[in-house]
Write a protein that binds this DNA or RNA. Structure first.
Lengths: 357, 357
DNA sequence: CTGAAAGCGCTTACAG
DNA sequence: CTGAAAGCGCTTACAG
């Protein structure tokens, strides 16, 4: 390999030489640590600017290695029979950990039952006992989450919300989709796929609905598309807190028998596979079915042709970015972005095999 | 911040201590550099395994900083009036450079006119003169590209192809979409959006078509979807090497007057905005229009509703990943993936604002 | 075949 | 307010 020997960037040493000071002083100026005379500070700053100095991140990190472990807490729903969705953010967090564990990062998991508020509260308590340096979580239960946030702000602990934000709250950092849009675009797809005379069914299948901001907001986005575009399609609503297949299929079949002109069904969360299973058993191939999340059961029905579109928001990347944001913030004081909106991906039978969660 | 002082991972020093050798010897064993007695080597290896030693990448890189500059060459089409598409991979390469320039990486650009084979050949010559340590390029002209590859393989220079592969050639590393699928999925969308009685038009608008593998392969994918699914839609073909608006619009309007039942048009590359402009001027709002690439002109017509779907394959990320792969390969001997398929993204009016190229 | 020492660019006690 | 020195974990001449 042919190589040059010239330096690409000047370092603290060079700045110190030009400024006729020690590198310790240069470091003080760079990081505004104080204890430097105005005159020296100005001189060094001007040199830094002239040289367009860029710190060597490698060396920075290396020098900090000995500082001890940083403890991050992850508070997310456990995966359940109902859905494996939450595996993805956890995988993302682990992937991040692999990249940064060398720098003394430790992650502790606090998993709760997403249908049980008490289990959430309990894990919040454990988390507080753990005294994390940073927190990654999803606000499944808004009230308890708000308490956690208040506590974190009091102790100055940085935190990142993923997957869903808390409405009307000024959270430190949210990484996830703009949920309204994520419902809105589902409606656009329906609009492309069905006739104006057909009816549309919105199905909310979750143990907890009224308190579930993500579901409500998605539905809102969905309905608004029809309003905004003056579409004449009749939109029906279907809600159930009984998420088992037997219960859902029974209620669905009753509804579909009454309403004969349903052209499309949107399931507002990852439980779309339950509906797909019903459509398969009932032989209803012509209804366009849309839902959320790239999980195995859903992919199965996507392949079979019973699910037509899955909308996904890279949950794994959300976990990954969340941990990385905390890391960068804690180690390099890098400010966190208030809102980092993930892309809203459209997955079909023909592109799912290339998708990266 | 609460912190632990315990080490997460043992380093070479600890291994040296346990093995009663110097760290230089440990290093020799780790990297198989030779010059170590069998006995010592075995001893050290067993310690390394027992400790599950993971090298500190930071320190590795830092120690290599002084080794001099690595020179990477980027060979891509220049952006032109015709299309700004190639800005994205270049931006990606620059983004990668920002992250790694501290480690002595230099990038030289060789831009050519994608409608002029001679300009490609000329830049290949310049590139060879440059004596790059690694090459990132797109094989716009397959024959010349093959020559470049042969030369690179002879000199042992690693190279990465982006955006399009060379068919039937065993290239070292390809980063981009599976192009056939990228046409196939366009057909799926058409299938969802139009009636069986409607006709479909495939438009190839490019100065060079017969030699353009990407366009041909996309069209193949598109046609195959209709075949595979026994769709009755008549598929018409439209080809022109005159890419200007005046020429395209004239020919299109002639064709559309003759064929009155066109329900959808697919443009096989980024020139879809030209067709959109025509549809706008002709007031043809009901024709579904699909094309490729997230570029400004296309987004404009997406917003206006004349383009319905854009299919994108993250060109910026392709450039980014390409440079990173070369960097990792040259600096850390990390083997390159033979094929890294990008996701095939579907962009509409309602999700484009969250897209990350 | 092996080791002592210098260096990568930064941060951090510590001394003055 | 300022500087000399040690250290982060690794690599690399150089000496033996």
């Amino acid at each position: 390999m042919e190589k040059n020997k010239e330096k690409v960037t000047a370092g603290v040493k060079e700045i110190a030489r030009l400024g006729k000071v020690s590198i310790a002083t240069v470091d003080r100026v760079i990081h505004n640590r104080g204890g430097v005379s105005k005159k020296t500070k100005a001189k060094i700053q001007s040199i830094i600017e002239k040289l367009n100095y860029q710190p060597n991140v490698l060396a920075q990190r290396l020098a900090l290695t000995s500082r001890g472990t940083i403890r991050l807490a992850v508070l997310l729903p456990a995966i359940s029979e109902e859905t494996e969705f939450w595996q993805a953010p956890l995988d993302g967090a682990k992937q991040a950990l692999d990249e940064i564990k060398q720098y003394g990062i430790h992650i502790e998991q606090f998993l709760f039952d997403q249908n049980d508020q008490k289990s959430f509260s309990k894990q919040v308590k454990n988390l507080i006992k753990f005294k994390a340096d940073g927190i990654l979580f999803t606000p499944t239960f808004p009230e308890e989450s708000t308490k956690l946030i208040e506590r974190a702000e009091k102790t100055g602990t940085p935190y990142v919300l993923i997957n869903a934000d808390i409405p009307q709250t000024d959270t430190l950092c949210y990484i996830g989709a703009e949920i309204f849009s994520s419902g809105y675009i589902a409606a656009q797809l329906v609009h492309y796929c069905i006739d104006e005379k057909k009816k549309v069914l919105v199905a909310n299948i979750a143990a907890e609905i009224d308190n579930n901001y993500a579901i409500l907001r998605k539905e809102e986005g969905f309905m608004n598309y029809f309003k905004d575009n003056n579409l004449p399609n009749e939109v029906l609503s279907f809600k159930t807190t009984q998420t088992s297949y037997s219960s859902v299929s029974k209620r669905l079949s009753g509804l579909i028998k009454k309403q004969n002109d349903i052209g499309a069904i949107l399931v507002t969360n990852s439980r779309v596979s339950v509906v797909a299973k019903y459509l398969e058993s009932a032989g209803l191939k012509d209804i366009i079915l849309l839902g959320y999340d790239f999980i195995n059961e859903n992919i199965t029905y996507l392949k079979k042709g019973f699910i037509d579109f899955l909308i996904c928001e890279k949950p794994q990347e959300q976990g990954y970015r969340g941990i990385m944001a905390l890391f960068q913030y804690l180690v390099f004081s890098k400010p966190m972005e208030k809102k980092y909106f993930m892309p809203i991906d459209i997955i079909t039978k023909e592109n799912y095999q290339f998708y990266r969660n």
